[in-house]
Every structure is written in structure tokens, then in C-alpha cells.
């Protein structure tokens, strides 16, 4: 069909590709610029002074490094604990929602699981602050952890439930037909089949916890910082190059996580 008639391709719209490129440019330009400036020799963040890893060294050894390291440690501990807790709770909920037949509170439970997604973040932040103050919990790692655990549940639930939906219950029936007790059917069949979903759920919850600024800022109390609140505090006093180094490091961690979860998701699809 060379030359001759020009095929009308109904999938193509003029300009859509250009818009896509512009979209990608807007998404990446700020991150790229920050990454580039993080290896800038100059102390001035406006002028280029040659390549240097000085600001990365500053992040680990500089005068502000203990503060950021403590904050990073808090962030990671909270994200691991809240992510793990939320994943366990969400796994249990997903099993009930997909394997316990019909029960009365099902619709209400579904709404409850999704409640943290529907309530605006700032409202959750305010409500949590009021609640913890009212019951006399002073702000700290504990309150941050409880708040994170709560809003991480729906994020952990989404991939787990999606995975669960694609697992036919005939696998467990086959296992029980072959003399597996319900406990064995769960441990040997359902759990291994759910694993990719559970893993994605954990990663998602982990990243969401690591990402949170607003709710943490409300419930953290004085003196306790996570990485986002520490960065926010520093940025309020002006953007310094060490912030760009930290940002670039966090960018790297995020990209690594997404790639990991993508690869796992793909291998999960393959075994199906």
C-alpha cells in the first residue's frame, strides 16, 4: 500500500503527541533541574560553578546532617511499621471481602476502607490533631504512626483486593479437595497467590507514608521531625543546595521503588 491512497488513521489526532511531550517536559523539568543543581560546586544556587558532590557529603556529614539523619530514620521506621501494619490489616480485610460470602456490613465496610481516600487530607489532619489532644496523647512517633497506619490501609488494600479479585476460589477448593485443611489452603495456596498484590500493597503504603507531610505536621508535636517536615522547615528559610541533594536522593529512592514494584507486578502476571 505504498504511495497511492493515504490511510486515514482514526487513532491519531494532530498535536496529541506534542502535548504529550510538553506534559512529560513539565513533569520532569523541575526534578531534572534540581538533580543538576545538586551537583553544583557553587554555594550560590543560581550560578553554575562546576561539578561537585560536596552537597551530598554535606547531607551526611555537614552541620545539619544529624537533624536530617534523625528525621530520615523516623520516616523510615514509621513507613516500615505503618506499611507493615496496614498491609496485614488490608490483607485480612481483602480475604473477608472476597471470601466470606455476603454479609450485612459489607457495603459499610467498603465505604469505611475507602474513607481515608475520600476525606480531604487537611480535614484528616485537623481531626487527628483534635482527637489525639482530646484523649491526651501528646504528639510524637506514636501519634504519627497511628495516623499513618490509618491512611495507609486503603492504599495497601487497593492492589491486594485487585489481586484477590483475579484469584479464583477454585484453587482453594482444589486444595481442600486434596485433603488440605482450611489453614493449609490459606498458607500453601491463597497466600502465595496473593503475594504480588501484598507486596505492591506494602510498597504503596510505604511510599504514601514516606510522602506524607500535612497530617504528620499536625500530629507530630514539637521536636519530632520526619524527613518531609524537616525539609519543609528548612525550605521555609530558603532553598539551600543540601536540600537539593536530599531531594535528589529521595527521587532516586522513589524511582528505585517504582521500578521494583513494576518488575514484581510483571513477574506476578507471568506466573498467572
Amino acid at each position: 500500500m505504498s504511495g497511492g491512497m493515504k490511510q486515514l488513521d482514526l487513532r491519531r489526532f494532530p498535536g496529541f503527541f506534542a502535548i504529550t511531550l510538553a506534559c512529560v517536559a513539565v513533569l520532569y523539568a523541575p526534578l531534572m533541574v534540581v538533580a543538576v543543581y545538586s551537583v553544583n560546586e557553587s554555594t550560590s544556587i543560581t550560578r553554575w560553578g562546576g561539578f561537585s558532590l560536596a552537597w551530598y557529603a554535606d547531607v551526611f556529614t555537614g552541620p545539619e546532617s544529624p537533624k536530617f539523619q534523625r528525621a530520615a530514620m523516623n520516616s523510615i521506621i514509621i513507613a516500615v511499621l505503618a506499611g507493615t501494619g496496614a498491609t496485614i490489616i488490608a490483607t485480612s480485610a481483602a480475604v473477608a471481602m472476597h471470601r466470606a460470602g455476603r454479609f450485612r456490613a459489607k457495603t459499610a465496610t467498603f465505604a469505611l476502607i475507602n474513607l481515608p481516600l475520600m476525606v480531604p487530607e487537611v480535614v484528616t489532619a485537623v481531626a487527628s490533631l483534635i482527637f489525639f489532644t482530646a484523649i491526651g496523647f501528646s504528639g510524637g512517633i506514636g501519634t504519627i504512626l497511628l495516623a499513618h497506619l490509618t491512611f495507609c490501609i486503603p492504599f495497601a488494600y487497593l492492589p491486594i483486593a485487585a489481586r484477590m479479585q483475579s484469584i479464583s476460589d477454585s484453587y482453594e477448593q482444589a486444595a481442600m479437595d486434596l485433603y488440605a485443611t482450611p489453614r493449609e489452603a490459606f498458607r500453601l495456596i491463597l497466600l502465595p497467590l496473593m503475594r504480588p498484590g501484598i507486596f505492591s500493597g506494602f510498597l504503596l503504603a510505604f511510599i504514601i507514608s514516606l510522602d506524607d507531610f500535612l497530617i504528620t505536621n499536625f500530629v507530630k508535636g514539637a521536636g519530632v521531625e520526619t524527613l518531609p517536615t524537616a525539609i519543609f522547615g528548612a525550605v521555609k528559610q530558603g532553598i539551600k543546595p543540601n536540600i537539593m541533594a536530599i531531594s535528589t536522593l529521595m527521587l532516586g529512592v522513589s524511582v528505585a521503588f517504582v521500578t521494583l514494584s513494576w518488575l514484581i507486578g510483571r513477574s506476578g502476571q507471568k506466573t498467572q
Partner: peptide, 20 residues
């Protein structure tokens, strides 16, 4: 009796072979 106590086995319509 529950299925795992019955000396009866099943070949499922879509086989239900454990994929892992």
C-alpha cells in the same frame, strides 16, 4: 464431612492447577 475429610477427588472444569 468437610471436603478435606472425604476420600473423593475432583477434576475441576478449568483444572484449578496451582499456578505457583
Amino acid at each position: 464431612l468437610p471436603p478435606y475429610r472425604r476420600p473423593v477427588n475432583t477434576v475441576f472444569q478449568h483444572y484449578a492447577l496451582f499456578p505457583h
